[in-house]
């Protein structure tokens, strides 16, 4: 049933239709429509409190929509528990490191086998991509640097080979060089026919890999399009300056801070480009 529609495959992996969601009685999403297809990286941008994380919570099954519905691979998925979704090919890395701080690196990798791969496969893939983790396999995860922790979290995306990957602010508190490395990985994963939905408060780092951007404010999507098609005022407000490939510049200026993965991970890349 393929259509002649250029590069974009037809069937969406994630599909939110007029989704509303609330914490208790307070509604924080007022009708979200969003489609993510394989090979696509959709970046949800917007200020703090806009509802980005909440969208990911709905899409990962942690929060049940109060109205509207969300579909995964064409199937209605309202009310399906997060662990069921996870086992059926949805990989979610929540805000703040998505790892178990009190377990060792190896044990954290063991927890990734619920996706269906064996322990050996998980370890091989993770250690091949992040040799640092192999060096630290017996270390308790909470004692590693922020960059190493986020690598460990991303190892799950590698090992489970998901249909969809949800990432919540993976750049938070990391040095620019690490962020670049992580987003390079995101691009590779997406190229492997994975649908990626990610959020960033400060978008510069994500723009290099995003194929589409949705800007959120106060529980609504206020603009959506290719990164360079965004209206200039929105770009100014949320993307920290004019337009597009800020990633390269950010990478350049980060050279001086190349102690990247050590404990001194600095803040995200906003407001640094000329």
């Amino acid at each position: 049933m393929s259509s002649p529609d250029r590069s974009v495959p037809v069937r969406p992996v994630l599909h939110l239709r007029s989704v509303r969601a609330a914490y208790g009685r307070i509604e924080v999403l007022h009708g979200i429509d969003l489609v993510v297809r394989p090979c696509e990286v959709v970046a949800l941008l917007g200020p703090n409190g806009a509802g980005k994380s909440t969208v990911l919570k709905v899409a990962s099954g942690q929060l049940v929509p109060t109205a509207g519905c969300f579909h995964i691979l064409g199937r209605h998925a309202n009310g399906i528990r997060p662990d069921v979704l996870a086992r059926s090919g949805l990989c979610t890395i929540p805000e703040g490191r998505g790892i178990f701080f009190n377990l060792t690196v190896t044990e954290n990798l063991t927890m990734m086998t619920y996706g269906g791969s064996s322990r050996r496969e998980v370890q091989e893939r993770a250690f091949a991509r992040f040799p640092r983790l192999a060096e630290r396999r017996r270390q308790v995860a909470g004692t590693m640097s922020g960059g190493e922790q986020q690598m460990l979290a991303m190892a799950r995306a590698l090992s489970v080979q998901p249909a969809a990957l949800l990432l919540d602010e993976i750049s938070m508190g990391l040095a620019p060089l690490v962020v670049d490395e992580l987003y390079e990985l995101v691009a590779q994963i997406a190229a492997d026919r994975v649908a990626v939905l990610l959020t960033e408060q400060f978008a510069r780092a994500a723009l290099g890999v995003a194929s589409r951007v949705a800007v959120m404010a106060q529980g609504r999507i206020v603009a959506e399009g290719r990164p360079d098609d965004l209206p200039a005022d929105l770009a100014d407000a949320y993307l920290g300056g004019s337009g597009t490939a800020g990633r390269r510049e950010a990478g350049g200026s980060a050279d001086t801070r190349a102690g990247d993965t050590s404990a001194g991970d600095t803040n995200t890349s906003n407001g640094r480009a000329a």
Binding site: P82, T92, G98, F100, F101, L103, M111, G115, R156, V160
Partner: peptide, 13 residues
């Protein structure tokens, strides 16, 4: 792991 972070254990499957 569940004691460490219950929600994350669920997200792991």
């Amino acid at each position: 792991a569940v004691v460490d972070n219950r929600g994350l254990a669920g997200l792991n499957g």
